[in-house]
Design a protein around this nucleic acid. Structure first.
Lengths: 134, 134
DNA sequence: TTGATCCTTCCCGTTCTGGGAAGGTCAAGG
DNA sequence: CCTTGACCTTCCCAGAACGGGAAGGATCAA
């Protein structure tokens, strides 16, 4: 199967597949006589795995770890769980940061009358140079 | 005032100040005889503004827009408010996406017993190739 | 044959810095 | 006066994860 078909089946772009190959996330694809990459069911399954893991926010590096665990029939599920839990922690930190920004911004937007006059509490706040989080 | 002092006062690195200058976010700093950049109160105020805006998640481009409005004594506060509201929308989209990821991951982690046995619902889910959001 | 649609490699651009090299400056101390 | 250390300058590389697009080869349908 050509890379284009594989990409469509896996839900990622051909560019990304080549990228994943180049950084060693997946093995070098076998080539056919015309030098085209060739993908079979196993490769498609890996690409789908990657697609799903990426869509859950795992970095390419983390996906590599998960793939290694997936390939290892003797892994301990604890290891997988740890990777996932660390990722959840990352996500929660990001959420908290974004929520904090949102709260501040909502407050500022609420204070700004938003008409054609120039005075603006939002700009005043920014100009005050308050540190946001430290 | 040297760039190092300015950086400390504004809460950003000297590297970043040079970068902001290079991309036109701030004007080229005046130079002293030794070719060192020189910063005064006005420049410090701008740098602080930038620091604060960046810490609220505005992109460098958006900070440029906000700086332009700040410098324009005849701006309409409505414009500032629009920039801020668009940014809040961005943030909310990101929060929603992260929350969705977190929910899925929490479900999976809860299903995984996390011991030394190899069977793992997390890997099974990833391998199933479910699309996450479309 | 021709055109359209694949595929290949290659390099550049994105965003926002951080790291570090090579070299100029300056202030203090021996 | 000389050295040492802490500044400053420019410049280039790195990262994360691709997308765009060029130049050229392969395949396929009419």
């Amino acid at each position: 199967m050509n890379i284009g078909q594989a990409a469509e089946k896996a839900g990622i772009s051909a560019k990304s597949i080549r990228y994943y190959e180049s950084v060693g996330l997946i093995a070098q694809a076998t080539r056919r006589g015309n030098n085209y990459r060739d993908y079979g069911d196993q490769e498609i399954a890996e690409l789908r795995f990657i697609h799903r893991a990426r869509s859950l926010g795992f970095s390419v590096k983390e996906v590599g770890d998960l793939l290694a665990l997936w390939r290892d029939r003797k892994r301990a599920s604890q290891q997988v769980r740890e990777v996932a839990k660390r990722h959840i922690d990352d996500i929660e930190r990001k959420i908290a940061e974004l929520q904090s920004m949102r709260a501040t911004l909502n407050t500022l937007v609420a204070k700004c009358h938003g008409d054609d006059r120039p005075d603006c509490p939002i700009l005043e706040d920014l100009a005050s140079g308050k540190p946001h989080c430290g």
